[in-house]
């Protein structure tokens, strides 16, 4: 097994009297796409900022490429690319100037900056917008430019904090495809997301974070197999009445969960569960059988849905 690219042990982050990250252990292998999954406030972004060497750890050890961020922060940052949660593009510069100056921050020669910028604009499908002012770009274009910018130093590790939040479905798919290409090129990626489908699409392995702690770890498939049933039956009884019908499904599947808008019944055979529900005289407004997803894993582990 190769040396892990990131090793964190008992990593904590405190802000005054608030503990955002409460001691986590993480290892990321070279070439892997690793995800931090969790709701807002779970400590994902604080963790990412520590890994990006822009926020010192309050406690615990962190090593990237075998180096300590507290000692070799600049050396580590020279080898990573960062796509922050909110775009920090330079709005006073054009699209290609954003790439040039970023390359200069990494001490690349002007000629090299231009060469790489041309390639990256191609990669980000922004070649025809090279001279545009950044402000006039769409959300998806800005995001692609952020990713292009993070690649200017040809990083071995790419950190993406909620890469597709706020993008429309089409823009998300374009972005996912670009990230997949990078994976094929061997770029290690660490990303945070609160989108289940994104985590399932992109991540080889992920951890579920809640309230500053890691509550589960594995591949998307492993997590679903371990924490959920094969299928889920969703029953909608109409607003305000789900509470009252919830208890009547006891024993139909392995377990059940009452949400404000629906009742979830976890069962390996969803159709059989539905038949049993009908047999008991339950008449939901609508019923749906689907495969278990990471959303269900999250619900089980934290008792809350991710959208909260």
């Amino acid at each position: 097994m190769p040396e892990p690219l990131i090793v964190a042990r008992g990593l904590k982050k405190r802000f005054d009297d608030f503990e955002a990250v409460k001691g986590i252990d993480v290892e990321v292998q070279p070439g892997e796409v690793f995800g931090f999954l969790g709701p807002n406030g779970a400590g994902k972004s604080s963790t990412m900022r520590m890994i990006a060497c822009v926020s010192p750890a309050s406690e615990g050890t962190l090593r990237l490429f075998g180096m300590d961020p507290a000692v070799d922060g600049a050396k580590i940052r020279a080898r990573i690319g960062v796509v922050p949660q909110l775009d920090t593009l330079d709005t006073e510069l054009s699209v290609q100037e954003n790439l040039w100056i970023y390359g200069r921050y990494f001490d690349l020669s002007r000629a090299e900056c231009r060469r790489r910028a041309t390639e990256l604009l191609e990669f980000a499908q922004l070649t025809d917008r090279a001279d545009s002012v950044v402000e006039h770009l769409s959300g998806g274009m800005k995001r692609r430019l952020s990713i292009a910018r993070s690649l200017i130093n040809e990083p071995e590790l790419l950190l993406l904090d909620e890469p597709t939040t706020g993008l429309d479905p089409q823009a998300r798919h374009v972005l996912w495809e670009r990230l997949y290409r990078l994976k094929q090129q061997g770029v290690t990626q660490v990303l945070t997301t609160h989108y289940m489908d994104e985590a399932e699409q992109l991540c080889d392995r992920l951890v579920v974070m809640d309230q500053g702690l890691i509550v589960a770890e594995g591949s998307p498939r492993e997590l679903i197999d371990q924490y959920s049933t094969r299928e889920v039956l969703e029953l909608r009884f109409g607003a305000g009445t789900n509470d009252q019908f919830g208890p009547q499904v006891v024993g139909i599947g392995d377990r059940f969960e009452v949400l404000p808008d629906r009742v979830l019944v976890y069962a390996d055979d969803g159709e059989a569960a539905l038949a049993e529900a009908h047999h008991r005289g339950l008449r939901p407004e609508s019923a749906l059988v689907r495969r278990s997803s990471l959303e269900d894993v999250f619900l089980l582990l934290t008792g809350r849905s991710l959208a909260d």
């Binding site: 600049a74 940052r77 920090t88 970023y102 921050y105």
Partner: peptide, 13 residues
């Protein structure tokens, strides 16, 4: 504009 946040993600200090 958060220009400095962007710069500090690089070897700039």
């Amino acid at each position: 504009a958060r220009i400095y946040d962007a710069a500090l993600a690089t070897p700039m200090g």
